[in-house]
Write a protein that binds this DNA or RNA. Sequence first.
DNA 1: TCTTGTCTCAATGTTAACATTAAGACAAGC
DNA 2: GCTTGTCTTAATGTTAACATTGAGACAAGA
Lengths: 229, 229
Amino acid sequence: MSERSVTPARRRGLADEVADTVREAIFDGTYAPGAQLREVELSRALEVSRGPVREALLRLEREGLVHTAWHRGAFVVELSAADIAELDSLRGALEGLAVSLVAETADERGLTAIEAAADTMGRAGDAYAMVRADIAFHDAVYAAAGHRRLREAWQAIRSQVHLFLLTRVGVSDDLAHLPGEHRELAAALRAGDTDRAARLFADHRKHAFHLLTGGRTAAPYPGSERESG
Amino acid sequence: MSERSVTPARRRGLADEVADTVREAIFDGTYAPGAQLREVELSRALEVSRGPVREALLRLEREGLVHTAWHRGAFVVELSAADIAELDSLRGALEGLAVSLVAETADERGLTAIEAAADTMGRAGDAYAMVRADIAFHDAVYAAAGHRRLREAWQAIRSQVHLFLLTRVGVSDDLAHLPGEHRELAAALRAGDTDRAARLFADHRKHAFHLLTGGRTAAPYPGSERESG
DNA sequence: TCTTGTCTCAATGTTAACATTAAGACAAGC
DNA sequence: GCTTGTCTTAATGTTAACATTGAGACAAGA
């Protein structure tokens, strides 16, 4: 049992540490969308040299949280309406695969983790904790899929989704229904009902999309509608 | 007309140059799967310092062509049967979205580019040129989808697919039917027939999968079969 | 008034030296 | 004979200094 929790014990290096710190700073609002991330500034603040900072910024760029330009530096991304639509449709495609994998091949451990994540969401205090729990729930689903590249594809947009949720949280405080939805999703996955699970996940996304954009955003890509029809 | 081909003219930096060179070297077989990529060795050979080389290796890692371990360096990936199955299923999910986007919203320019890529394939000389043309065809499809993050998700596995095709080319010299298939795919896309295009693309992948793995490989993920049913 | 050329400077791109790590060889101990 | 500890060495991780770039300010010219 306790053997299971033994971490691979691999050293992480300063770059990972820096990346985590900066990512949290962006989520905390320390660096707002559009803000510039200066290498020397960060290296001074974190007491490391510019090497690891550069590497960390590259990693954040891979996550889509930061965009860089030649000799002009790194900036926190500003998500446009079109970007939100892209994230929504791509999420749909990835989650479609993840859900079918989990429903058809997931083991007990993965299903338990998903249900635990759903339960955690029910105990979330404020809206920000709710957002964290929501992301964690989807993390659990991707983890249970047992598909490394799929998980990596999710991680490439995960931070952007997180950022979007954080900036839009508060436009609607009617988030109380989410924990119930997640428990329903978890139940469908455990039941192995692929079609029902896929439909629920699609509805879940569409629901959140319209709720958070308030309908003022561009319509989602047509491709994102296909699986729910 | 000529205005259209004006490149953004942005400087690329040594890291991009190095990444391109090393990627080509991997595809050429200079660095076989499993080979170590030493930073000092590369920096000496390319006459740059280790900084850009490190950055290039990070980029190749993002493409999945290389994997690195703490204080142990970078190695060319060795694709297992499970990896191939992952690539196939993830490709299916991404292409499903791409195909529906192209069939429903693509403009004339994108469709023309796809057809041009299909025609190029017909004129491919040897099997290696055929592989390049095949990748280029799919590139054109993703480009025509007009979905930046989808294209990036494809680029994250593109090189791995390319590497796999190169290592397996020759197990079957019956690749003559591919150009015809591609032209058929292009026609379905231009016709805007989403369902037919999706079915054709799924069959195309399944066909290539079985052809190149010779059926000796693990079965593809169940999720990869869904859209063709 | 608008354009164009020059200048300045802050920031990134690059380099080479230094510090730390991990795998392998080898001998001591059980 | 097998394990364990130490040493060596080759590689990466990190640092700080140097080189290059791009945006803005400003003045001269049409």
